[in-house]
Write a protein that binds this DNA or RNA. Structure first.
Lengths: 252, 252
DNA sequence: TGCCAATACTAACCTGCGTTATGATGAATT
DNA sequence: AATTCATCATAACGCAGGTTAGTATTGGCA
């Protein structure tokens, strides 16, 4: 089933069998994409959205000199650009990182769902807000963490998200990224990413080598990156309450 | 009219008179909030959302030591926590920065809109995706810009957003923030924010003093912060095509 | 009018990360 | 087997911004 991973394991919003069937029925086409190919360009109107079945995709903004900031990484089960349905035009580019398989859903079909299935519409809406919640976690990462923390946070997040899609066993997963990709996610240079990865290796937290991530100390890595999976809205918290959150409060 | 600024000036999604009337009709209460007060706490279920009528609010995530990263600033006309309607629980805190006036809309009423008014629902959805687009611009800001650029970008964005609400004349607006607020937005220390503001002053780009922002060189400030308002989905681009965007493309 | 707390401002010092450069490794192509 | 190109790795050096430690303003309130 092509839509099987969509919203899987997300608190209170997984799809009913009927909703899955409806989504399957509005898929107009399944495509295979080659690695490093651009799919959507910022500013161009689009009339369909893309459900990622397999592989990795990303969304990004380039600066004036062409230096890139990734604003999202999408994994199997993600509705990559569903937000293009209400927005009509995107504010960023979308591309594949690895080879990928995607299902195409025309916006006209989403109009039908919107007009006739309020509950499914609310779940689609929910899924775009999940992406926004991830954006916020990334803002925290870039704003408050040092380079080691940023990479630790990203790898911890990706581990959990891949677990949902059955692509990580909880400590080990394939991630076909270059060190430069990690740099563009974490807002650091590729030279420094290399230093950071060495440090994570030396601290026995995590090894990332030849496209395999192996986390030796899941909890230690999460601690180093101040990773708290609350923003992923999981049905089952993988950390339970290990990372007891003490927070000061400046406001009354 | 309480909802008059909601989605005002946003490309293709401003509300019809009838839709405005419906939104007005579902407001259960108007409240006045004191400055620096917390409104929603992360993780607690909420049953209504908040439309900001006047003042400034923010959304933020604190780190382990209580250091804060703002993930959004909301101005008059913003539906501060509409995303809580599909999400049910938030992944971050919400608070006022200044004194504020807000309109409360119960989620039960939004259920009715969702069930019976697909077009208005799509616009509400759109407005939450606008927030996500702003998140992405903030990611770009934190990931790719230096401190001066970050502050320049933030002030340029805020200028445009306040113009939409009629609270900036295009160069001058009231912003009741402390330098520490700016720091927590831009991911820098308050000491450095002070240095940055001095530099912006010395470079004749912008003066921020006693809660008034005066932009002396709107285009220069935008350039310094690589600010391109595309992500705000405006009906009328305030910069037209002054900032001609040359971008390299790494991908085919 | 004077007091107090919050905010603004500045300087001196230090460090994490950027920059530049150069080489090693490995995978694809001939 | 040789060539090429992308990726990984490491070292040397510099600087933007953090840290610490103060002083100066400001504004609210008694």
């Amino acid at each position: 089933m092509l839509t099987e991973n969509f919203l899987k394991g997300r608190r209170g919003s997984s799809l009913s069998l009927e909703e899955h069937a409806v989504l399957e029925s509005v898929i107009s086409e399944v495509r295979t994409l080659s690695p490093r190919s651009m799919i959507v360009r910022a500013g161009e109107p689009i009339y369909h959205s893309t459900l990622l079945i397999d592989g990795f995709m990303c969304r990004y903004v380039d600066d004036r000199e062409g230096l890139r900031q990734l604003v999202a990484v999408q994994v199997a089960g993600d509705f990559v650009d569903l937000h293009a349905y209400p927005l009509k035009v995107l504010d960023h580019d979308v591309a594949t990182l690895t080879a990928a398989t995607v299902a195409i859903i025309p916006h006209g079909k989403l109009d039908q769902i919107n007009a006739t299935m309020p509950e499914l519409t609310r779940k689609l809406w929910f899924s775009t807000l999940l992406d926004a919640a991830v954006h916020r976690a990334w803002l925290f990462r870039l704003g408050r963490l040092d380079a080691v923390g940023r990479v630790a946070h990203f790898l911890s997040e990706t581990n959990v998200r891949l677990q949902l899609a059955g692509l990580s066993d909880g400590t080990r997963f394939a991630l076909g990224f270059t060190q430069t990709d990690i740099s563009e996610i974490c807002g650091i240079t590729n030279v420094h990413t290399n230093r950071v990865l060495r440090q994570l290796r030396e601290e026995q937290l995590c090894v990332f080598r030849s496209s395999i991530v192996e986390i030796q100390d899941v909890e230690g890595l999460a601690r180093r990156g101040q990773f708290d999976p609350g923003y992923l809205y999981l049905s089952h918290d993988p950390f339970k309450d290990t990372a007891a959150h003490q927070k000061q409060n400046r406001f009354a």
